[in-house]
């Protein structure tokens, strides 16, 4: 079992130039748990994660790991405790999977030192845990999006950190691969006790996989707690400015958000009917679905 580490933000203020993104935020990441940070676009959730990973230097306040401020500790020492998977890492052209995963060993290696026995073991373990052992000698360029994401996660595993921060690890993946990645993270948390903090767009997946959630709006922490406490229709209204109905997910029991939108509300006219009306309603629905898909793919491109 891994020892538990405490990661906390203390009156953290983050800014890009003049623009203040996060203002005086305090939070404590629950050790040994999966934490999801949710919020609307531009609410500062990725910025917060970047600060927790010491990529962004705080304007004021500090991030504290095991009681010591991050900036006061040697970079490599932190990198043996705190791992990060950013949103869009780049793979050098033509690099093979094993070598890329091996880069995760960087904080454990000295200048010019060769790979140790342990380096090999940890890389092999990471490849096995992510199910890409067979791809070890393949070039990363040849892989599909889902496989590539597993390679990056394998690299983070090879880093052997007790805390792992991930910025939207499921973006650009189809739903099957999203579940696969999140299952992998859940395994990691269960088997090794790794503390996981991730920014997730999909609220329902966040509610299902996280033990703890933080909801952000305009750089302020609106709520923090178990998903069943945090995800309510009132909170969704506050955080996303969206009307919704929250029900229990029939698969996992976690809260499930059903957004309403202008065209859908749980009023009687949308209830199942019979006779000539129902055919008409069905056509109407098909149109609505087509419209929804259009707007969904539009939003994604923009992102």
């Amino acid at each position: 079992m891994t020892e538990s580490h405490t990661l906390a933000a203390q009156s953290l203020t983050l800014a890009y130039g003049e623009r203040i993104i996060v203002d005086g935020l305090d939070l404590v990441v629950p050790p040994g748990r999966i934490t999801a940070i949710i919020g609307a676009n531009g609410c500062g959730k990725s910025t917060l994660l970047r600060a927790l990973a010491r990529i962004l230097v705080p304007r004021s306040g500090q991030v504290v790991l095991d009681g010591k401020a991050l900036h006061a500790r040697p970079a490599k020492e932190i990198a043996r405790t705190l791992g990060l998977l950013p949103q869009s890492p780049t793979a050098p052209e033509g690099i093979v999977v094993a070598d890329l995963v091996g880069r995760g060993r960087h904080p454990h290696q000295k200048l010019l030192s060769r790979w140790s026995e342990r380096d090999y073991e940890k890389v092999a373990e990471a490849l096995a845990a992510t199910g890409i052992t067979d791809l070890a000698d393949r070039s990363v360029d040849e892989l599909s999006g889902g496989q590539r994401q597993r390679v990056w996660i394998a690299m983070a595993l090879a880093q052997e950190t007790d805390v792992l921060l991930l910025d939207e690890p499921t973006t650009f993946l189809d739903v099957a691969h999203q579940i696969e990645v999140l299952d992998l993270l859940a395994d990691l948390n269960r088997d090794r006790g790794t503390t996981i903090v991730m920014v997730l767009h999909d609220m329902n997946l966040a509610a299902r996989y996280a033990d703890h959630m933080f909801a952000l709006r305009d750089g302020h922490l609106i709520a923090g707690g178990r998903p069943s406490e945090v995800v309510t229709d009132e909170l969704i209204r506050t955080v996303f400015r969206l009307e919704s109905t929250v029900i229990a997910d029939p698969v996992s029991g976690a809260p499930l958000v059903l957004p309403r939108g202008r065209h859908h509300s749980p009023e009687p006219e949308h209830e199942r009917g019979s006779g000539p009306d129902s055919m008409h309603q069905l056509e109407h629905r098909v149109e609505q679905v087509a419209e929804l898909e259009l707007s969904y793919s539009g939003g994604r491109d923009e992102h």
Binding site: A53, I55, E77, P86, P89, P92, G104, P107
Partner: peptide
């Protein structure tokens, strides 16, 4: 030559390199 390991990590992006303990 003393910087080459750090430079190697920076090929993965500055964020990831920071995460790996590169200054």
């Amino acid at each position: 030559l003393a910087q080459q390991r750090g430079l190697g990590a920076m090929r993965l992006g500055d964020d990831l390199a920071t995460g790996l303990g590169v200054r």
